[in-house]
């Protein structure tokens, strides 16, 4: 197993290289000038030229990329062109926000999926199955930013139950205030994942619940809770975990759609700002982080197959 994990991690390195080079070239091809942004408002042409020289932006593309890569291999992702902040520190400042948002969305999605997926699979074709299928189909189609607006309108502006925007770190005003600021964004981000997982779980669980060993367990008088919780759910989990892994990585990208309307200062906002400002080091740092995250998530999904299915493990 360790060899498998190590091989997969090493195999991810060329991917990181290709992705970083691709993004570097893409930013370079995009119209715009980082020097003009760094020089600031009302800067003279001379000042912009001076900044361009200082930042080494006059050097050929491959030299600039080589310089970044060489530093990155030594753990130095450079400094933001616009804020002078180290990229690692900028990402470190924003990561807790996006990680918190993703965590809350994930907990919401999994809880909802388990509840409604199991409910729908118990009586296939019944009222609960049809209701869950209908609601889930609608939820899959609901764009997160639209959902965000509706949630704010109802729960913040009308009922005044939850904050309409912003983020408060756990250490600042406590866990409840932290969570309070993330409930609506978490729901907005996690709803379509919840719906998709619920549909997957329903399909998979319905199939498993029809198998012979489940019928045998029922015949022996085993309680339904134990049949579903202990025997059926684990076997029905593989397709659900596959979707979860795939959609989880997508959630990071989708987080930006929720971070903006809720004004959450997370990685999505950082990505937008650094793209608009041609802040290449920050953008590359983010891309490398995201790619590494996707590699690790996919690896975890593969490893989890072994837990759910002993045949895969062997």
């Amino acid at each position: 197993m360790l060899r498998f994990v190590a091989m997969r991690l090493v195999g991810g390195l060329p991917l990181l290289f290709v992705v970083s080079l691709f993004i570097f070239v893409l930013i370079d091809l995009a119209p715009g000038d980082a020097a003009a942004v760094v020089a600031g408002e009302n800067a003279s042409i001379e000042r912009i030229a001076q900044v361009r020289q200082e930042l080494g932006l006059n050097d050929p593309l491959l030299i600039r990329y080589g310089r970044w890569l060489s530093a990155a291999l030594q753990g130095d992702l450079g400094k933001s062109l616009t804020t002078d902040q180290s990229v690692l520190s900028a990402i470190g400042q924003k990561l807790p926000v996006t990680a918190s948002l993703t965590l809350v969305a994930l907990v919401f999605a999994v809880t909802m999926a388990l509840t409604f997926g199991i409910l729908a699979s118990l009586k296939p074709g019944g009222v609960s199955d049809r209701t869950v299928t209908m609601l889930a189909s609608a939820a899959v189609a609901a764009p997160p930013f639209w959902l965000a607006l509706v949630l704010v309108l109802v729960f913040s502006l009308n009922l005044r139950l939850l904050p309409a925007l912003g983020y408060r770190p756990i250490g600042e005003e406590g866990t409840w205030i932290w969570l309070k600021h993330l409930i609506l964004p978490g729901i907005a981000l996690g709803t379509s994942l919840a719906a998709e997982l619920a549909l997957q779980l329903k399909g998979s669980l319905t199939e498993v619940l029809g198998r012979d060993y489940i019928l045998a367990a029922r015949a022996k008088g085993m309680p339904r809770v134990v049949i579903v919780g202990k025997h059926a759910l684990k076997n029905a989990a593989i397709p659900v975990v596959t979707v979860l892994g795939y959609r989880f990585t997508q959630m990071l990208g989708g987080a930006v759609l929720v971070e903006v309307p809720f004004n959450l200062p997370g990685l999505g906002t950082l990505a937008i700002d650094s793209t608009l400002a041609h802040d290449v080091p920050t953008l590359l740092g983010l891309v490398v982080l995201m790619t590494a995250f996707v590699i690790v998530t996919n690896l975890l999904v593969d490893v989890s197959y072994g837990y759910f299915n002993p045949k895969v493990r062997s």
Partner: peptide
């Protein structure tokens, strides 16, 4: 119309790269 990000719009005008600039007088 050629939209450009941030201060680059002003930068492009001042560098003589565009014919005109739709921008505020501050």
């Amino acid at each position: 119309v050629s939209p450009r990000p941030g201060f680059e719009s002003t930068g492009a005008f001042r560098a003589g790269q565009v014919d005109a600039l739709v921008n505020p007088y501050t």
